[in-house]
Design a protein around this nucleic acid. Structure first.
Length: 586
RNA sequence: GGGGACGUAGUGUAGCGGUUAACAUGCCGGCCUGUCAAGCCGGAGAUCGCGGGUUCGAACCCCGUCGUCCCCGCCA
């Protein structure tokens, strides 16, 4: 070992000990004959002093070091002189008086600061990711991630789950996201696909009788990126046999409580986590991943305004649609420009317009003149809007448009008005998702979760008569408005699976070709089973308080799915192409 | 595929049609024994992302392009 103790571990109790440290020069304060040096390793920072009179040789060496040099220092741990302790440093009560020093490696001037939390162009950070990862703030995130994953593994094992690895080279799946694909050298013209998740594999492990499986699993989806989406990401993948929905929730909820209480810095607003049905979540928040750190629930005015003289409202209701509102507390003073911006947000959600009523001290002001005084007063009563509040109303024949528009408005106003509690986490379960959703593009029903999801027992009969009304045994875990997990109870009987494929318009031959292995497996005694997968990257990002999962991934990709350090993807040699039986066409 | 923002010394920014492109910090040199964003003195460092156009004159205006970020589509 090049060191006898870690920098960040030194305390008063080590006083009088001679220690050897090794690390990076974090910062240097040169007073000529006296040099102060902050030495940093993974554990933290400690101040080293070196006095030219007492340690001439060491002083000469430390005089030459610069930021980020890798050095070794031997010295005596001493309490700081009275009044000179640094309360900002865990090691601030002591310092190490160097008696010997060695330069283990020099360092070029870094392209950005390692020793301060300044904003740096992200492209530069990614190009020099190994330096970015050296910055204490980034290092904290990576360490947090390790701790979270460690806690997950310990917890899952304690709960009787086995971690089993599944292949990364597997097979393309027809449903779902675009696959990443790997050409086969041995089988010309054939390809593996990287798993979008180990979905079928974990179900097969249930057939195989492992009963409780988990995996910290890498998943791959070739879709466009977002702040919360990377082409490869990590899930806690879980599957259990002989269970119902509540059993999965009963495993995952205590895990998330533990992760937050052990590694987070904020309390959980509500325990146990509220359970909302999909229908409730859409009705109250217009979203299947509602941010419950604030209120602003929607108010349904459809009944109240069905016969309104304002045609937009009555027409929406007559067309089977809705008129709904949110109350922005204290926003009655919003300017024309601010209201225009809100209307633009509503339009992005599909709404044709936005009606606002500002309940000002001098009287309410409605953007729709056709509303009567009585209606304006009734709306205030129904929405519990008082003086100073702004009511925003969206009407549309489509409930989805109303939901999306109002949801965007709710989130924007929640942020603008400071209503979102930044000092706490709010988690909830969303259950009873629709089993199917209509794909306008393909003119067919498609699985909302995936094709192996079971319908709720009482809804199976609707599958042929009214597919859109069938609810699934599916559930999402939502944290602070992020979808952090999702799962379902699976279909484990072949005839149910066949009915599902029929509903999806997948014929017996196609089903056999694409899912034959799974269907056959189900004929050999598949237990009732179900599972969930939660996003490790998202979970850690929320715990770290960062808006992007890139901040909790050691080597993330850019928005265009490139790696700026490796410069990948990259072309391959003609020889490699030939070997893989590939030709590049453009 | 679409929309938006950004791109100026190593880094972070200012400059938005007219002197030698400014400030902070970092870097280099000198001084300095109690600093912890040390201080003081001096110095070097920019083909203003790239290409084209408008203009007497472009970092600045226009077009294109590349890159990064955010959003929509997409993400069972």
């Amino acid at each position: 070992m090049h060191k006898s103790i870690d920098c960040g571990d030194l305390r008063l109790e080590h006083t009088g000990q001679t220690v050897t440290l090794a690390g990076w020069v974090h910062r240097r304060r040169d007073h000529g004959a006296l040099i102060f040096l902050d030495l940093r390793d993974r554990s933290g920072i400690v101040q080293v002093t070196c006095d030219a009179q007492n340690a001439a040789a060491a002083h000469e060496i430390l005089n030459a070091v610069r930021n980020e040099y890798v050095i070794q220092v031997t010295g005596l741990v001493q309490p700081r002189p009275a009044g000179l302790a640094n309360p900002n440093l865990p090691t601030g009560d002591i310092e190490v008086q160097a008696t010997g020093a060695a330069i283990l490696n020099e360092a070029r001037t870094t392209p950005f600061y390692i020793n301060e939390d300044s904003d740096v162009d992200e492209a530069l950070r990614l190009k020099y990711r190994y330096l970015d990862l050296r910055r204490p703030a980034v290092q904290r995130n990576i360490i947090l991630r390790h701790n979270v994953v460690k806690t997950i593994r310990d917890y899952m094992a304690d709960q009787g789950f086995m971690e089993i690895e599944t292949p990364v080279l597997i097979k393309t799946t027809p449903e779902g996201a675009r696959d990443y694909v790997v050409p086969s050298r041995v089988h010309p013209g054939e390809f593996y696909a990287l798993p979008q998740s180990p979905q079928q594999l974990k179900q097969l492990l249930m057939v195989a009788g492992y009963e409780r499986y988990f995996q910290i699993a890498r998943c791959f989806r070739d879709e466009d990126l977002r702040a919360d989406r990377q082409p490869e990401f990590t899930q806690l993948d879980v599957e259990m046999s002989f269970i119902e929905r509540e059993d999965i929730m009963g495993v995952i909820e205590p895990l998330y409580v533990r992760l937050i209480e052990q590694w987070g810095s904020k309390p959980i607003l509500r325990k146990p986590f509220p359970v909302l049905t999909y229908a409730e979540a859409m009705a109250k928040y217009g979203s299947d991943k509602p941010d419950l750190r604030f209120g602003m629930e929607f108010v349904d005015l459809s009944g109240l305004l069905a016969d309104s003289g304002f045609g937009v409202f009555s027409a929406a209701v007559a067309a089977g649609g809705q008129v709904k509102a949110v109350v922005a507390p204290g926003a009655a003073g919003y300017s024309r420009k601010q209201l225009d911006d809100l209307a633009e947000v509503a339009r992005r959600g599909g709404a044709k317009g936005l009606v606002s009523i500002a309940y000002r001290d001098e009287g309410p002001r409605a953007s729709a003149k056709a509303l009567t005084e009585g209606e304006v007063a009734a709306i205030a009563a129904a929405a519990h809007a008082g003086a100073g509040d702004l009511v925003l109303i969206v009407a549309d024949a489509s409930a989805a448009v109303v939901a999306k528009s109002l949801s965007e408005l709710r989130l924007l106003l929640g942020r603008q008005l400071g209503l979102i509690r930044a000092d706490a986490h709010a988690l909830c379960w969303v259950v009873e998702f629709p089993l199917l959703e209509w794909s306008a593009d393909e003119q067919r029903w498609s699985a909302m979760h995936h094709p192996f999801t079971s319908a709720m027992d009482e809804d199976w009969d609707l599958l042929e008569s009214d597919p859109g009304r069938v609810r699934a045994k599916a559930y999402d875990l939502v944290m602070d408005g992020w979808e952090v997990g999702g799962g379902s109870i699976r279909i484990h009987r072949r005839e149910r699976q066949a009915a599902m494929f029929r509903a999806l318009g997948i014929g017996p031959e196609e089903a056999e070709e694409k899912f034959g292995h799974l269907l056959e497996a189900f004929e050999y005694g598949a237990p009732p089973h179900g599972g969930i997968a939660t996003g490790i990257d998202r979970t850690v990002a929320i715990l770290a308080g960062t808006p992007s999962i890139r901040d909790v991934i050691a080597f993330p990709k850019t928005a265009s799915a490139t790696d700026l350090m490796f410069r990948s993807p990259s072309s391959i040699s003609p020889a490699q192409l030939r070997e893989l039986h590939l030709a590049v066409t453009e």
